[in-house]
Design a protein around this nucleic acid. Structure first.
Lengths: 115, 115
DNA sequence: CGATAACATTGATGGGCGTCGATGCGATTT
DNA sequence: AAATCGCATCGACGCCCATCAATGTTATCG
């Protein structure tokens, strides 16, 4: 929700401050670190790349377990972390859940490393 | 000091594969995850932003401890992690060690999230 | 309904990480 | 040489995380 943030942080960029633009305070650094923590795992990075490689733009969990070589609960665990970080979305259709990338959120994290 | 990058892993392989370009194998994902792990901490992000905000491009450790509100060993610990990840460099001059950003390495990590 | 399939959640375990006080090491100063 | 300063390392503590087996939940099928 668009709760009233301190107008200081809203002036520059509405979403994600850059690491290199100006000194980060503890709150900003914490939020950014939370985002990068979601990327700081090989399994999750491979999950993202698998989703990106799908022509339809979405992959059901059943097609993610085998390529990763991890157990189904483990894959589900990582998908939840990515979902909570806003990097992926899950859509339930019948028995299956189809996951897709949130490219906007990924781009936001990328721009945070803007030189 | 100046922890040198292990030249063993630096083969002909392109510097940084994109997460979204093609499915990552375990090795590529592991290396990328190691890089993002270095960014997945508020103190380290603030360290990077402090280095970036310095007009001279470098800051000695003695000027980093107070702004971060962490103990000197903790700051030194995070600087080592950033150094091993190739994100910063340290130069010893007399009693002081001056740290500076490695913007190329930062840009490489950023481009790994390129869509 | 009962059975089955697809995901999510729980509980347990082993390992890694952030933090700080104490200590060590190199360089400067007196 | 002795004292001091700047920074790195060590040892220890507490906490979080990745992983899997077992179980729960939701939906489809016979």
């Amino acid at each position: 929700m668009a709760t009233m943030e301190s107008s200081v942080t809203r002036t520059v960029r509405p979403c994600c401050p850059s690491v290199l633009a100006s000194p980060l305070d503890g709150v900003q650094a914490g939020e950014l670190a939370q985002g990068f923590t979601a990327l700081a795992d090989p399994v999750r990075l491979r999950l993202l790349s698998l989703l990106a490689a799908s022509p339809s733009g979405e992959v059901c969990v059943c097609d993610l377990v085998a390529p990763l070589g991890k157990s189904q609960p483990t894959v589900s665990h990582h998908l939840k972390i990515l979902s909570e970080a806003g990097l992926v979305r899950g859509d339930r259709r019948g028995k299956w859940v189809w996951y897709s990338l949130n490219r906007a959120r990924l781009a936001a994290l990328r721009d945070a490393i803007d030189a």
